[in-house]
Simulated assay, not measured.
Amino acid sequence: MDQLKRSPCPVACTLDLIGDRWTLLVIRDMMFFKKQRFEEFLESPEGISTNILANRLKLLEELDLVEKQPYSNHARRMNYQLTEKGRSLRPVLKVIGLWGLKHIADTQILKVDLADGDKIGDRY
């Protein structure tokens, strides 16, 4: 996906790609909550709509942050997984989460699947 850049600033360029209201939340769900299927993303507490979710998943695939694979005989049923490039956003999400915990009242770490042996501190 080749877009015109507003400036050569890396912060501006990164925000142009993933700085909207929903993209990092979809990545968060894949990274920390192990969500893979469209229906699972819809269960998140933020309440993303189906058309926005479909758009974000397509964008993330175009940006090579996510890859999809069919999980049944039905051609439209897909599992979405982070690519290595997508997984490289982990430190960014951790810092954002820690900043929110420190500076925004009434925030908390949501319950995450720790089956892979991560500690909560490793998650955020």
Rank of each mutant, 00 (worst) to 15 (best):
S44C: 10
D20R: 01
E43F: 02
A75W: 04
G47W: 06
P8R: 08
P70H: 04
Y71V: 12
V66Q: 00
P10L: 07
L57D: 09
Y71K: 03
F41H: 00
E67K: 13
L24S: 11
L59R: 12
I52N: 07
Q36G: 15
D20T: 03
E39G: 04
G47L: 05
R76N: 07
D16R: 08
I48K: 00
F38W: 04
T50N: 07
D64I: 04
L42E: 14
E40R: 01
R56Y: 01
L60I: 01
D64A: 12
Q69M: 05
V66T: 04
T14G: 02
P70L: 04
M30C: 05
R56A: 02
E43L: 04
E61D: 10
I27H: 02
E40C: 06
I48P: 00
E40S: 05
W22D: 08
E43Q: 08
E43M: 07
L53I: 10
L24A: 12
P10A: 08
D20A: 03
S44F: 13
E46A: 11
W22H: 07
L15G: 05
E46K: 07
C9L: 12
N51K: 11
W22N: 05
P8V: 12
K68S: 15
I18S: 06
L17Y: 05
I52K: 03
I52S: 12
F41I: 00
A12W: 08
L17P: 00
E39M: 05
S7C: 11
E67L: 07
F32K: 02
L60W: 00
F32P: 00
V11H: 13
R28S: 05
I18G: 03
C9V: 13
D64Y: 07
I27R: 05
M30Y: 00
R76D: 05
L17S: 11
L63A: 13
M30V: 04
E40M: 03
M30R: 00
D20Y: 03
L63Y: 14
I27G: 10
Q69G: 03
K68W: 08
E61S: 15
W22G: 01
P70M: 10
Q36I: 01
F38H: 06
L59V: 14
N73H: 05
P8E: 11
D16L: 13
S49C: 12
P45S: 14
V11T: 14
I27K: 06
T23H: 01
L17M: 11
I52C: 06
L42K: 15
M30A: 14
F33G: 03
E62G: 13
F32C: 09
K5T: 12
R37P: 01
I27N: 01
L25T: 09
E61I: 06
A54Y: 02
E62N: 15
P8H: 11
V11S: 12
K35F: 05
E40L: 02
L17E: 08
D20C: 02
D16G: 09
E39N: 10
E67R: 13
L57N: 04
N51R: 09
T14M: 10
I18C: 03
V66C: 09
L25A: 09
K68D: 14
Q69W: 02
V26P: 04
E43K: 12
